[in-house]
Structures are given as C-alpha cells and as structure tokens.
Amino acid sequence: MSSTSRPAPPESVLDVLEIEQRYRRRAGALGARRARRPGRRLPAWVRRPDLLLAVAVVALVLAWALVPSVFTGQSPIDGVPADRLQGPSAAHPFGTDHLGRDLFARVVHGSRLTLQATVLAVLIGLVAGSAIGLVAGFVRGVVDDVAMRVVDVLLSIPALLLSMALITALGFGTVKVAIAVGIGTVANFARVMRSEVLKVGAAVYVEAARASGVRTSAVLLRHVLPNAAGPVLALSALEFGIAVLAVSALSFLGFGAPPPAPEWGSLVSGGRDYLATAWWLTTLPGLVVAAVVLSANRIARALERRTAA
C-alpha cells in the first residue's frame, strides 16, 4: 500500500477511534468484495464440509469431557471380568479391555483429563506468551532484546524434551503435564504476538492515540491488543492440536495420571500388551487423538486464512 492511500493524519484528538474504525471498515469492505465473487454465494458449511466436520469433532469431544454420562452409561473404572477382551460390538462400540472395562466409556471419560490438560496448557502459553510478546513488541529496546533471546533459547530445546525436563522437576500427574506442555508453548505465542504488535504498533491510529496523550496501558489494551489478537487466536487453535499430541504422548510415556484413571495416551499404552490379540485397545483411542488433532489443525488453518484476508 502506498502512503498516499492512507487516511489523512488526525485533525483532533477525538479522531483516534474514528480512524481506527475507518481502518477496520476498510478491511471489512476488502474482505466483502473478495467474498462477493461469483460461485462463492453458497453458505460456508456447504463450501467447506471438512471444516464443518472438524468443528463437529472438536465439539463432540468437548461435550464428552463436560458431560460424559450423556454419551455412555458404563463405568470407566469397574469392569465385568466375564466380558474381558471383547472386540467392538453394539454393546461395546470400542470393545473391552483385559479387565472387562468398556473402552468407549474409558475414552469418553478420558477426554476429561486429557482435554483439561490441553486447555490448561494452551491457556498458560496464551496468557504468558501473549503478555511477553505484547510488552516486548510495544516497549522494544532492551526488554525486547532480552525477551526474544530467552524465546530463542526456549525454541532451541525440542518442546517434548523441555516438557520432560519440567516434569522431572515438578513430578508426575495430569496438571503437571499440562504445566510442562504449557511452558513449552510460551515461546511460540510470544513470538507471534510480538510480530503482530510490531505491525499494529506502526499503524496510524496507534500513533494518533499516543500523540493525543492516551495512557500507555490504555493504548496497549484498547488499541494494540484487539487488533493483534487475530493471528494469536489462530495460533491457539493450532497449539490446541499440538498440545493434545504432547499431552497424550507424555501420558503414553507414563507421566500422566496414575492408573486406573483413563487418559487418551495411557489408554493406548495400556493396550500395548495385547497388540497381537486385541487391536482395538490401541487403534481406537489413538484414532480419536488423531481425529481431534487433525480437526484442530483444520480449524486453525481456517482461522489463519480469515485473519490473513
């Protein structure tokens, strides 16, 4: 965009919000023009059925986590020994394990622990990472340099190994796994938030707000943060998928909740002893993990495209 197409500088201090709105309107108009191309008038869910499916998968597992008893009447902990190691059937859609427990019930109830850990991990990364990125990108100077060097160092250690080091120090359990995975994602959030803040911070409306004497904290919270949030939220969806993978991998390795509490990762590792005879014990819980991660990635790509448009 050439500088001539920019709106004129604010004439009065009251113009600040007005200019910001004009920017937003204009961005909206651009998006609308793109959307009005012929052949694109179908509703979004017809045009992109895979996106609809992805949203449905994530909504379903979230519902599993919130109200598991709606989806299964069977106990995830108590089994019927006579029914042990049965394949998938109408009574047991995912089959039963070596203690006769219904695997579907264990996956549904397991989504609570696994998704709790995932959401907590993403929240930790989102809040801490965004705060670091916001301050670093806005204050610049030494603060920025130090924060970004720390981010570089965190990125130089593979996320899984960083989480494992944190678990060594914190101990085992679902919440500790969540904290360990969350700290591993801080660096990514900080980096994306910083680059967005640098972009937004150069906008005329931020300059105008500053020049008209708005307090720094108000500039940050009312002007910079809302306009920088889009890509960061798209990243949250992406990190949700990565966190599901990391949480279930760490649970698979045995660092999550102790048995008999079900977690997606520990369910898969629990089926390892029956690989030759009971394929469903590892295959079906793993399939659920894969479906959720794939869906989260699909949603993240849609969000990314929207914020990029």
Binding site: G241, L245, S248, A249, F252, G265, V268, S269, G271, R272, L275, T282, T283, G286, L287, V289, A290, V293, L294, N297
Partner: peptide, 12 residues
C-alpha cells in the same frame, strides 16, 4: 502426517 500421534503410528 503432522496430526498422527507418533506412538499410534508405531503401534499400528
């Protein structure tokens, strides 16, 4: 490829 849990692929 990036969405499949590595432990699951191995076991399959």
């Amino acid at each position: 490829g990036v969405s499949l849990p590595t432990f699951w692929v191995g076991l399959l």
